[in-house]
Design a protein around this nucleic acid. Structure first.
Length: 490
RNA sequence: GGUCCUGUGGCCGAGUGGCUAGGCUCAGCUCUGCAAAAGCUGCUACAGCAGUUCGAAUCUGCUCGGGACCUCCA
């Protein structure tokens, strides 16, 4: 059940049987956010997808070291290897120190991840905390002959590298095609080749974020951090490297080149890429300006949003689409999955009080097998969820005395639902045990008892008024055969 | 322009050769004082054209549409 995991590997463009380099252990690296602004929902999708993958690997019994970096230096705007540093620019804008920008948006990112119930990674290294490692790596690449220095900036020599290794491997492209489609070098350009990229960049005089290096004061290029940190914590070759699809062509391609040039080893066995989140068919991105922030999503305070959506509803919405498919955002779709999610969670509650019978009319083992088959097939959460809804249907039918189930199967079902819904999909119920909640519970019991008496007298006008009044305060009463129940409407 | 992906019912979204995806919506029924919930039933789709095959949403070709990357972006 646990040993048939198949993963789609971008490198080979096929689904491959997952066999970790070290039995029972998995090294997982995911490119984290660049913390110069708030994360938008599209960013979140990637991290939520890998949270699911992390969770399922853990559930499958692997010991996982999950490294997700924080990029807090080295990202430039505009033209490649030129332009302003994003952190410095934002710092000027907000009248803060660059590291204040880093701190502010790192904390914001963590808050959002917590809202989405994403597990923290095992290690969350920062680029600025690993300048030495990056410098060492650049030195090694130079001494291996794949990089050159010009006026305090170090460039990676792509054409030379490509003579020995397939540079465009990850996107299935030939170097000639890549060169043909890249802008020409400008007259002042220091680079030898059009595709050459910076490993280390000389600072401008006004720049605050700077570090000493053998090539003078500067800062690392934006690809080298991931290579340096992944090899430091996971080794020169590790199991899974993930990130958004938009990183595939440039960032990840260059990561492979850097690591290969430095260590003479392919850095990653399985490359995994999550697809983009779109809004009305167009990719959500910072530059397109069609994104909204998680906070806006939760409150509904954005022109694109009809209402607020709970973090768990959004997480469930994302889980209903496979991670390699584009996910198109719309209010309608989000509201649809919100309802489905509520129904699924309601059935889990119902499961707690299910009555056992001598025999089962449904095959719980079969559902369990289907759930594992779905997840083992490249983390197919839509199919998993379809099966969970089947389980949910069974629970409700048993509750309605239309089907029966044995005590043993109830236990299996509870285990199944808990493990897949809470542990793997990472959903959670918003239950709390504060004093006021307990008091509310007590009060509601009293109210329901009073209403029961009113109903017994057939004073339906009074009982309906009570129900309506409670409803105005977001407390929903449902009269079932076995008495009344109440829920708080979110 | 180059490289690649994609087009599924009212909406979202799985599925890569034959077997019910699933969710939401809508309609009817059961239950019910009413409402809600829950269950059952129905709406049974694969852009178009041609081909391969006993059989195609699934493979091949063409046509049309949508998107991504090639410049920073998860």
């Amino acid at each position: 059940m646990k040993n048939h995991l198949v993963i789609y590997n971008t490198l080979t463009r096929t689904k491959e049987k997952f066999e970790p380099l070290n039995e029972g252990m998995v090294g997982l690296y995911v490119c984290g956010p660049t913390v110069y602004s708030d994360v938008h929902l599209g960013n979140c999708r990637t991290f939520i997808s890998f949270d699911l993958i992390y969770r399922y690997l853990l559930h499958s019994g692997f010991k996982v070291r999950y490294v997700r970096n924080i990029t807090d230096a080295g990202h430039l705007e505009g033209d490649r290897d030129e332009g302003d540093d994003k952190f410095e620019k934002k710092a000027k804008l907000e009248q803060l120190e660059p590291m204040e920008i880093v701190q502010k948006y790192t904390l914001g990112f963590h808050d959002v991840m917590r809202e989405f119930n994403a597990l923290p990674p095992s290690i969350e290294p920062t680029a600025t905390g690993h300048i030495c490692e990056q410098i060492e790596m650049v030195k090694q690449i130079i001494s291996n002959g794949y990089a050159y220095e010009v006026n305090g900036t170090v460039y990676f020599d792509v054409e030379k590298y490509n003579k020995e290794f397939p540079y465009g491997q990850l996107t299935n492209r030939q170097l000639d095609d890549l060169i043909a489609n890249t802008r020409e070098l400008s007259g002042q350009d220091e680079k030898r080749g059009r595709l050459d990229f910076a490993l280390w960049i000389k600072v401008k005089p006004e720049q605050i974020m700077r570090w000493p290096s053998p090539w003078g004061w500067g800062f690392p290029g934006w690809h080298i951090e991931c290579s340096a940190m992944s090899s430091k914590y996971l080794g020169d070759t590790f199991d899974i490297h993930g990130g958004g699809m938009d990183l595939q062509a440039t960032h990840h391609t260059n990561e492979i080149a850097q690591s290969q040039a430095c260590n003479h080893k392919a850095p990653v066995k399985y490359w995994m890429h999550t697809n983009m989140l779109t809004v009305n068919g167009v990719r959500m991105s910072k530059t397109a300006g069609n994104g909204f922030l998680p906070g806006e999503l939760f409150t509904g305070d954005h022109p694109l949003l009809e209402k607020g959506y709970s973090p768990m509803g959004v997480r469930f919405f994302m889980m209903q689409t496979h991670y390699r498919s584009t996910l198109d955002f719309s209010n309608e779709a989000l509201q649809a999955s919100e309802k489905g999610y509520a129904r699924l969670m309601a059935s889990i509650k119902t499961l707690e009080n299910l009555k056992a019978s001598a025999r089962s009319t449904s095959d719980i083992k079969e559902i369990e097998k289907n759930c594992y088959d779905a997840m083992n097939d490249d983390f197919n959460t839509p199919i998993l969820i379809a099966n969970l809804f089947e389980a949910s249907r069974i629970i409700n039918s048993v509750n309605d005395n239309k089907e029966t189930i044995t005590g043993e199967d109830i236990i299996s079902l509870k285990k199944l639902m808990h493990e897949f819904v809470f542990d793997v999909l990472g959903l959670k119920t918003e239950t709390s045990n504060t004093a006021s909640d307990k008091a509310l519970q007590g009060v509601m019991e009293i109210i329901l008892e009073i209403r029961k008496e009113i109903k017994a007298r057939k004073d339906f006008a009074a009982s309906d008024k009570l129900r309506d009044d409670l409803s105005k305060n977001n407390i929903i009463i449902k009269d079932t055969k076995d008495g009344s129940v109440w829920t708080i409407q979110e």
